[in-house]
Simulated scan of single mutants.
Amino acid sequence: MAIGKVWHELEVEVPASEAWELFSTLALARFVEQQLPDMIEKAEAIHGDGGVGTIVHVKFASGAEHKEKFTKIDNETRVKEVEVIEGGFLDFGLSLYRVRFEIIEKLGAAGDSEPSCCCIIKTTVEYDVKEETSDASNASSLVSIEPFVTIAEAAKIHLMKNNLYSIKQFREHHQLMQCQINLDPYLKILSALISVSSWMNCSSLKILFVSSDSEILRSKFSNLELILLMAYSKWFSQVRYDA
C-alpha cells in the first residue's frame, strides 16, 4: 500500500471523451515528447501498442531515465494507471511510483444528469519507500506533482486549440450571456437535422428558419453560422447551454 500521495486537478472546457482520447493511449507520451522537450527528451514504446501491459522507455531532459508500464486502462471510468518498473525513482529509495490519470466528466446544472462540455483532469501520484531505505523522508521529498501540473496545463491548451468552439468561446463570441437565450430547443432541432444526412442542405436550413421563435435565432446568427452550427451539432448535442 502506498504511503504517500499527491494530486492535482485541472478543469478543461472540452468533452471528457476528447481528453480521454489523449490521456488513455500512447498519444500522451508522444504529446509530452513533442510539446515539452525541456522535460522529456524521448518516450518510446518498447512493448505493446498502448493497451494494458505497454512498456514505455522514457528519457528525461535531465539525463535520467526509467521504464514505465501501463497497468490499468478503464475506458468506462476513464482511469489510467502507469507504474515505474525500472530506473527513475526506484533507484532513489522508492519501491513504488504510480501515476493515475482520471478524466472526470462534469455534469450540467444541479440535478441535471446530462454531461456538459467540461471535464476535470485529475492526476494522482502514489509512492512507497523501500524498507531498507534509511531516510524515508528524504526519498519522499523527491516526489512532486509539479511535472504533471505542467503536462495537464499543456494538454489543456492543446485540447482547447483542437476544440473549435469551447463553451466559453461560443458564448463570448455571440454574447449569449447578455441576451439570455437558452439554446436547448435549437440544439434539438440541429441534432435532428444532422441525424438525417440527406437533410444537410438548403432545405434543412429553411426548416430551421420556420421553427418557432426562429426570429431570435436569426437575429444572433448569420446563415453561414447556422450552417456551421448544423455541421457541428453532433458535438453541440452533447452540451447543455444555459446562458
Results as ranks from 00 to 15, higher is better:
residue 132 E to M: 05
residue 94 L to H: 10
residue 135 D to P: 03
residue 32 V to N: 05
residue 143 V to P: 06
residue 61 A to Y: 00
residue 79 V to E: 11
residue 58 V to G: 04
residue 156 K to G: 10
residue 147 P to K: 09
residue 185 P to R: 09
residue 95 S to E: 10
residue 3 I to T: 11
residue 36 L to N: 07
residue 190 L to H: 04
residue 149 V to S: 07
residue 35 Q to L: 01
residue 95 S to I: 06
residue 113 S to R: 09
residue 145 I to R: 09
residue 79 V to Q: 08
residue 68 E to M: 09
residue 24 S to E: 05
residue 62 S to Y: 00
residue 7 W to I: 02
residue 83 E to D: 14
residue 58 V to Y: 02
residue 95 S to C: 06
residue 178 Q to V: 06
residue 77 T to I: 01
residue 185 P to S: 07
residue 203 S to M: 04
residue 234 K to V: 04
residue 183 L to C: 10
residue 195 S to G: 15
residue 175 Q to S: 15
residue 142 L to R: 15
residue 235 W to D: 11
residue 39 M to A: 13
residue 236 F to A: 10
residue 140 S to E: 14
residue 90 L to V: 06
residue 76 E to D: 14
residue 60 F to R: 08
residue 156 K to C: 07
residue 243 A to H: 01
residue 93 G to T: 03
residue 46 I to H: 05
residue 162 N to Y: 02
residue 231 A to N: 13
residue 152 A to W: 03
residue 28 L to E: 03
residue 176 L to D: 03
residue 231 A to P: 01
residue 105 E to G: 14
residue 25 T to R: 15
residue 219 S to R: 00
residue 44 E to D: 13
residue 131 E to Q: 11
residue 167 I to M: 13
residue 230 M to H: 03
residue 108 G to Y: 02
residue 36 L to K: 08
residue 32 V to D: 04
residue 72 K to T: 13
residue 183 L to I: 07
residue 138 N to P: 00
